[in-house]
Amino acid sequence: MVTLLSNRKHVVAANYSMVSSNSLDALVREALTQNLKGIWRFAFSLSGNPETANDLVQATCVRALERSHQVTSDHRLDAWLMTICRSIWLNDLRAQRIRQTQSLSHAPDAALLDPRADTETNFFASEVFTKVMQLPEAQRATVMLVFVQGYAYREAADILDVPIGTVMSRLSAARGKLKHLMNDANTAAGE
């Protein structure tokens, strides 16, 4: 039985294996529906490319449903889905993407932002978006999990399979590169 979030203090005796495979399938299906945008953001942060993110999320859907029988009661399904997404990226798609582009550097596509926002808001969001997407892959993925998806450091560490200190170091490095944006925002607010 796979246990992904091993930092939990209590693990209940009953688990999802007591539930029928059809129930688990429905549970995973609903979790995919509810978390599709979050998984996509994470996939986008890993791949840096919206088309690859689509492929990655599609593959995550298929893999998660194939493995729904592995879900246990100490899984948080959203985190489990993120872990699958990362695994597919590392094992299946990352090398392919590098072969296609020769590198993972890319031109971030701020056109993904909502054009309905007012010009000033959109300009600032576009700048933040671009700077985040220019971060190295590991920092970008960590920023996405913690700052955008709201995972705690230790939860992000579990998803990324790194120590919590590594998550914090990556965030510190990202903060250093994004700090000027904060200063810009404060300056604008003071004007």
Partner: peptide, 8 residues
């Protein structure tokens, strides 16, 4: 950062 990605 969360707000910048809210609509994405």
């Amino acid at each position: 950062v969360g707000q910048a990605f809210e609509s994405v």
